[in-house]
């Protein structure tokens, strides 16, 4: 546990340093970019809690993020705005508005309930079965977002969400989530879950209730993902269904895989590398002028790079950069 806290502290220093540097030296554009990276960090950490400890590939994480984002957005947006944007919303959804904290709590609660209901199914399935059901969840949630345009506005922008968060808030939030994810990993449940991933029968024989610990991890994961969604909505001011679908699923998955899904350090490292790496690739993609040479536009390059990162990681280092080591394992003696 103490070692864990040491690790959390180290990661926090890095996260805070990046935040401070951006606040003082970054442009508005950089601020937005770094904010986006921290949102993805929250998603990857939420993903790690279940996927990394239970070692079951989850594809529904962006859907839970979306649920959190939409519920918080619907609650917090002023009635005056909703009267224009959601004139046909049922159940009086456009006739009330709440303060940000209550909105966030409601969003977390609703996501947790949905996660719990789905989790009851997911935890009973074999690894591949759980993955396909998580895929089904993603498709179903996305279809609902698209279909109920009266509530979610589908692919159109849901606008008018007040900007509640700043970069400072999300840095604090991410430090807190790193702490939670790390403490879960080292907790009794986390240890049992990892043990059952290594040897399901053995863990069962020594009295681990696999379904129960999986469910706990799944719900915690859902809660963290909803927080990521809330943070997303509370900063950007507009949301739509598109960012909560396959592209985002694969992006965050690649981050977790590259860093190493078994550790919190891996989740953070992978997110930072891909977020900042991809930004440079995107810059090349637009066809910039380098040293007087006008480079051509290469749309799709970032996708190729992202795919290559996944394939190469799987081929040469399937356990990710960090493997089973947390950051303090690199610095402290065992």
């Amino acid at each position: 546990m103490t070692r864990g806290l040491y690790g959390v502290a180290l990661i926090s220093i890095v996260l805070i340093a990046i935040g401070v540097a951006t606040t003082y030296f970054g442009s508005r554009y950089h601020l937005r970019l770094v904010y986006g990276a921290y949102v993805n960090l929250l998603v990857v950490l939420g993903l790690q809690v279940f996927m990394g400890n239970a070692r079951i590939t989850n594809l529904s994480h962006s859907a839970f993020m979306g649920i959190g984002a939409y519920v918080a957005a619907i609650c917090v947006t002023p009635e005056t705005v909703k009267a224009i944007s959601l004139p046909q919303a049922p159940w009086g959804l456009n006739a009330f508005s709440l303060d940000p904290i209550s909105s966030a709590l409601i969003a977390i609660a609703i996501t947790a309930i949905i996660a719990a209901l789905i989790g009851l199914i997911i935890v009973r399935l074999t690894a591949i079965g759980a993955t396909i059901v998580s895929l089904a969840v993603l498709v179903i949630v996305h279809s609902v977002f698209l279909f109920r345009t009266d509530i979610f506005k589908g692919n159109q922008a849901f606008f008018g969400i007040p900007q509640v968060f700043s970069l400072t808030s999300i840095v604090i939030l991410s430090v807190a989530v790193v702490f939670i994810a790390r403490m879960f990993r080292e907790s009794k449940w986390g240890v049992q879950l990892r043990a059952s991933a290594d040897d399901e029968l053995g863990a069962q024989a020594s009295g681990v209730n696999i379904h129960q610990v999986r469910l706990i991890a799944w719900i915690l994961s859902g809660i963290l993902l909803s927080i990521a969604g809330i943070a997303y909505a509370f900063y950007l001011g507009t949301i739509s269904a598109r960012p909560f679908y396959f592209n985002h699923v694969f992006l965050t998955l690649a981050m977790l895989i590259l860093g190493g899904m078994r550790t919190v350090t891996g989740a953070v490292l992978g997110t930072l590398i891909i977020s900042f790496g991809l930004e440079s690739v995107r810059w090349i993609e637009t066809g910039p002028v380098v040293l007087g040479i006008d480079l051509p536009e290469v749309l799709g390059l970032s996708g190729v790079v992202l795919g290559a990162v996944i394939v190469l990681t799987m081929a040469f280092r399937p356990e990710g950069i960090m493997g089973d080591r947390e950051v303090e394992d690199l610095l402290l003696k065992p």
Binding site: I56, T57, A254, V298, G300, G303, G307, V311, A315, P318
Partner: peptide
Amino acid sequence: AFRPVRYADPTTGLLTAFGVSMILQNLFLL
């Protein structure tokens, strides 16, 4: 693409396949 993960566990294979799929889609795009 798949020879290096030939004897790996299903999750590694699945993720590799996702990666390959992404690369090909974007190559078509590119």
